[in-house]
Simulated scan of single mutants.
Amino acid sequence: MEAVMAEILPPVTDPVLLKQIDLLAKRHRAAGGVVMHLIGYIGGSAESLLGKLPAPVRSGLEGATERALSGAMVAAEHSRGIVADRPDWMNRTLTAAMGAAGGAGGLGSSLAELPFTVTMLLRAIQGIAAEHGFDPASEEVRVECLRVFASAGPLDDDDGMDLSFLAARTTITGPSLKSLVAKVAPRLSAVLGQKLAAQAAPVLGAVAGAAVNYSFTSYYQEIARVHFGLKRLARDSGADEGVLREELVARLTKK
């Protein structure tokens, strides 16, 4: 019944809403530009980066990502009662410093840096959720923050298929949150594998690590602003969020 009702909802015709959706689509398209320029500078392509990692690292990346993401959920939430949300530029600066430390020691130190960067990224996403009027402590918003991580990633040309916009509504419980972490981990592990490979590029070392982390942080902050911007638009206008999402996806997939 719900699916049938969704099909007969009228399209968005309010010019103010349509303009806001256009701005969100423009922001989404621009989000990955800095990362792609960086990868071009390092050399190779997004598709070839994962192949540059040693086989043991590639095979263990998904499990390591799931552990890092689960730990980040706890650490980021606990830190909210201790450290105030930071502006975007500060989050980028801090993660860049982490990337520099990781890149300076090669792949080994980059792997050690990974869970700290994931925690910082998640905390930044939570801060943007709060900025848009949503409570990061609620289970529902914690899931929405994970959905930002489930986006295609800064190196994929897959805007219209981002899980952050197309994920089905679920009942929010502890087990379902854990299940969502398991679903996000494979997609995020591919993204983080690309990050590790770029970060461990020969010669560039700490400079590449800082630049990669800065770019990835910028990307996920922008995607979070699109995601929670859409949710706030639905909340404030009273429009159906699913219909607004379809309008956004239509703009992202339009060639």
Score class of each variant (00 low, 15 high):
R225A: 13
T119G: 12
H132Q: 15
T253A: 14
R86H: 14
P11F: 02
A101L: 14
S151Y: 05
V16A: 15
L196F: 10
H28M: 07
M120E: 12
L192C: 03
A197R: 02
P154G: 14
Q194C: 13
S215Y: 01
R225E: 14
G108A: 15
H78F: 11
G81M: 12
L38S: 03
V191D: 10
L121N: 09
E66Q: 15
G99D: 00
G153Y: 03
S48K: 07
K254R: 10
M1K: 04
A76D: 05
A30R: 15
L111N: 03
L177E: 12
D88H: 13
E246Q: 14
M120P: 00
V35L: 12
S109L: 14
M73Q: 09
K254L: 06
D135T: 10
S79F: 03
L18C: 04
L24Y: 03
G105M: 11
P202T: 07
V184W: 02
K178I: 08
G106L: 07
E247G: 05
K178S: 15
A211F: 01
A130L: 09
G40V: 10
L61T: 01
K19T: 13
A72C: 07
R27W: 00
Y214N: 12
R123L: 09
V12D: 09
P175K: 11
L166K: 10
V4I: 10
E47M: 11
L196S: 08
R169P: 00
R147Y: 08
R29N: 06
E246A: 15
H37M: 14
S237V: 06
P11L: 01
I172F: 00
T95W: 02
F228R: 00
V57Q: 02
D85W: 08
L163F: 07
F134P: 04
D88V: 14
S48H: 05
Y220H: 12
I21L: 13
E113R: 13
G43R: 10
G43A: 11
V57R: 00
P115G: 09
N91W: 13
K255M: 06
K178P: 00
L114A: 07
P202R: 06
E140F: 03
A182H: 06
L121K: 07
E66I: 12
E62I: 13
M161I: 12
A152P: 05
L252E: 04
D162P: 10
R187F: 03
G44R: 04
A130Q: 13
K254C: 02
G160V: 08
L94R: 09
L252A: 06
T170W: 01
E247H: 11
L61S: 02
I172H: 05
G229E: 01
S109Q: 12
V143C: 11
L9S: 08
A112N: 07
H132R: 14
V212H: 02
A84E: 13
Q221C: 13
I172G: 01
P115S: 11
T119Q: 12
D85F: 15
S151P: 00
V249M: 05
A185N: 03
T119R: 08
G71A: 10
L9T: 06
